[in-house]
Nucleic acid binder design. Structure first.
Lengths: 330, 330
DNA sequence: CTGTTAGCGCCTTCAT
DNA sequence: ATGAAGGCGCTAACAG
C-alpha cells in the first residue's frame, strides 16, 4: 500500500496526496477532502522509509538510559515524550548498560540515520561523549565542567549541602556520607563537606562510605559501620537506594530511624516512600529537566538542518531542586 | 557521506561496496580489503534509510511496556535485546501508559515501516490487540484464552496456587488475597482459591482485597483490614508492590512479619529483597520469556517476508516459574 | 569477480 | 491548483 495505490483509487496524482499529507503547497478544499477520504477508506499510512530518505531526517530522537530498571529515568522520559509529541517527534528508549560499545552503537544509529539526535541520561556521560562528537546530543542529569556540551541539570552540590544542613538542623552532629564515584556523586560529596564546614562540624573520614552503588553494597557498608561502634547520628546518602539500604541495615542492627540516626536520600524514587520509614530526600525537577533536554536537542537538530547559524556555544541549564521531608529525618 | 563517496575514494563500484557490507555475493579478498579500508578511512556508516527503503524492512522491533517505571520489565527487555543482537536486530522501547491511543500509535509505527513488529509486555494486552491485527506481534507475560495470538507466559494460576500452598505449609490458616483486576491478577486469584480448596480451608470474602494496584492502595487496604479486627495470619499478594505495602502496613499496625502474618508476593522485583523484611515471592523466568518472545516474533517477521507458509496457528509458550523463599514467610 | 542499472516510496521543483 | 519527473541511498538482478 503506497501513495500510488491511493492515487489509483481516487484519481489524483501522488504529488497532491503528498501535499495533503504534509499540509504543504495549496490544495483545493474539495480535492483535499477527496484525498482524505481515500486515505481513510484504504487505511493508508505513508511509509516513513520513503519520506525519511527524501528528507534525510527521521524526526526521531534516541534517549539513552543506563538501565530502565532504574525508575529515576521514568519521569524524565515521560516528559521528553510529551514534549516530543508536541513537535511530531518519535522517541526511542535505549539502554546503555554503561557499556562503551553501546555508546558507539547509538552514535552509529544516528550516523546511519535511524535517529536525528541523542539525549543522554547516563551517569557516565563523559565516557560516552567522545562517540557523539558528530551527533546532535544533549546530556541530562550529569554535568562535568571538563567537557563542552549542552547540559540540563540541577546544582548537585547545593542540593546536597541543603540536605545535610537539614540533618544538622534536625539535631544530627555526626553525619555519615554514602555515595558512588560518578561525577554527580562527587558533587554531592562536595556539598556534604561544605555543609559540615559551614556548621563547624568536623569531617570524619571513618564516616565516609564511598564507591557504593547497589543496595547490597550500601547495606553491607552501613552494617559494618554500625558494628564498628563508630558514633554517628545522621546519614546523607547520595541515592535513595543507598538511603533505603541504610535504613534497613540500621533497623537490623537495632537502631531506630530517625530517633537514633536520621537519614536523607537523593532523587525521590518510588521506593523512597515505600520504605518502612519513608525517606526524606532531594527531589529533582525531572519533568522540567526532560522538557528542557528535548527542546535543547530539538533546537540543535533544526539548526543543523537550517545550517545557518550553526555554531553556537553549548548551553548549560540548571534547574531548581526541592527538599522533601519525610519520617526518616524528623 | 554515501556509498558513492566511498566509491569515488577507492575506485570500486557501489555494488561491490554493498556486497562487502552485506556479505552477499562474491568479492575477491583483495577487493574486500580495499573496501574495508576505505570505509574505515572515511568512517562511513551506511544509511539505513536507503537500505530499509530498498529491502522494505527495518530489522527493528518495538517493545511496548506499560511504563518503564515498573522494574518488572527490565530483565525481559534486556533478554530481548540480547537475542536481537544475535540476529542483527534493533530494539526500541516504547511506553504505552495503557492508553489505547498509544497502541494505535505503535500499530501505525509498524504500518509506516518504522519497525517490523511489536512485542507487547502489557497487562492490558486484550485492549491493544485489535490495533495489531495487521502487524506481526507477540504478547509476553499475559494470556487470555479469549483472543488468538502468539503468547509467552507462565502458568499464573499454578504459581499462585503454589505460593498459597507454601503459606499454608508454613502454618497459615487464614490467608488474605491482594490483587488487581488484570487477566493475570484474576488467574492468580483463581490459584489462590484452588489452594484453599485443596487444603479444605474456607474462602473468606472479607479477606479478599481486590482492585488494588498501587502501593498506596495496597497500604490503605491492609491497614483497614487490620483495623477491622479481622483474623488473618497470611497474605498472598498478586504483586511485590502490594506485598511490600502489606508488610509496611502490618508493621505500622504493630504486627510482626512473619511471626503474626506471613506474606508472599509475586514477580521478584528489586525491592522484594530491599524491604525491611525480605519478601518470599514467585519468580518468573524473565530471561527465558524475553528470549522466547523475540524468537517468536522473529520467526513471524521472517515468515511474512518469505510469504510461503504464511498461515500458522498461534503459539502459546508456557514457561516454568520458581518460588523464592525469604524471611516474610518463615 | 565486478560494474551498470532499475527501482523501493516519497517530496519537491518545474511545468501546465 | 494539479501533474510529471527526478532523485534521496541503497540492494539485487543482470551483464560482462
Amino acid at each position: 500500500m503506497t501513495m500510488n495505490d491511493v492515487s489509483d483509487h481516487i484519481g489524483v496524482s501522488i504529488a497532491t496526496i503528498s501535499r495533503v499529507l504534509n499540509n504543504s503547497g495549496i490544495v483545493k478544499p474539495k480535492t483535499r477532502e477527496k484525498v482524505m477520504n481515500g486515505i481513510r477508506e484504504l487505511d493508508f499510512v505513508p511509509s516513513s522509509l520513503g519520506r525519511n530518505l527524501r528528507t534525510t531526517g527521521t524526526k526521531t530522537f534516541l534517549i539513552c538510559v543506563q538501565s530502565i530498571e532504574n525508575p529515576y529515568y521514568a519521569e524524565i522520559v515521560r516528559s521528553i515524550e510529551e514534549e516530543a509529541k508536541k513537535r511530531g517527534y518519535y522517541i526511542m528508549i535505549c539502554e546503555s548498560y554503561s557499556s562503551l560499545k553501546r555508546y558507539k552503537y547509538f552514535a552509529d544509529a544516528v550516523k546511519s540515520k535511524k535517529a536525528d539526535g541523542i539525549i543522554l541520561l547516563s551517569p557516565n556521560a563523559k565516557d560516552a561523549i567522545e562517540y557523539f562528537r558528530e551527533a546532535p546530543f544533549v546530556v541530562c542529569g550529569e554535568t562535568d565542567g571538563t567537557f563542552d556540551c549542552d547540559t540540563v541539570n540541577i546544582d548537585n552540590e547545593k542540593a546536597a549541602c541543603e540536605a545535610v544542613e537539614h540533618l544538622i538542623r534536625a539535631g544530627a552532629k555526626r553525619v555519615a556520607f554514602m555515595g558512588g564515584d560518578s561525577k554527580s556523586a562527587l558533587q554531592r560529596f562536595a556539598g556534604y563537606e561544605k555543609a559540615l564546614r559551614e556548621a563547624n562540624l568536623p569531617s570524619d573520614e571513618t564516616l565516609r562510605l564511598s564507591n557504593l552503588f547497589s543496595y547490597d553494597e550500601g547495606y553491607a557498608a552501613v552494617s559494618r559501620l554500625a558494628e564498628s561502634g563508630a558514633a554517628f547520628d545522621g546519614i546523607f546518602a547520595g541515592t535513595d537506594i543507598l538511603a533505603v539500604s541504610a535504613v534497613n541495615a540500621l533497623i537490623a542492627q537495632g537502631k531506630r530511624v530517625p530517633e537514633d540516626v536520621k537519614v536523607v536520600g537523593f532523587d525521590d524514587l518510588v521506593f523512597a516512600k515505600m520504605c518502612a520509614v519513608p525517606i526524606t530526600t532531594i527531589r529533582q525537577p525531572r519533568k522540567a529537566m526532560g522538557a528542557a533536554a528535548f527542546n535543547l536537542l530539538y533546537e540543535k537538530a533544526v539548526r543543523k538542518t537550517d545550517d545557518k547559524n550553526k555554531a553556537r556555544d553549548s548551553q548549560r541549564i540548571v534547574l531548581e531542586h526541592e527538599l522533601i521531608v519525610r519520617s526518616s529525618s524528623k
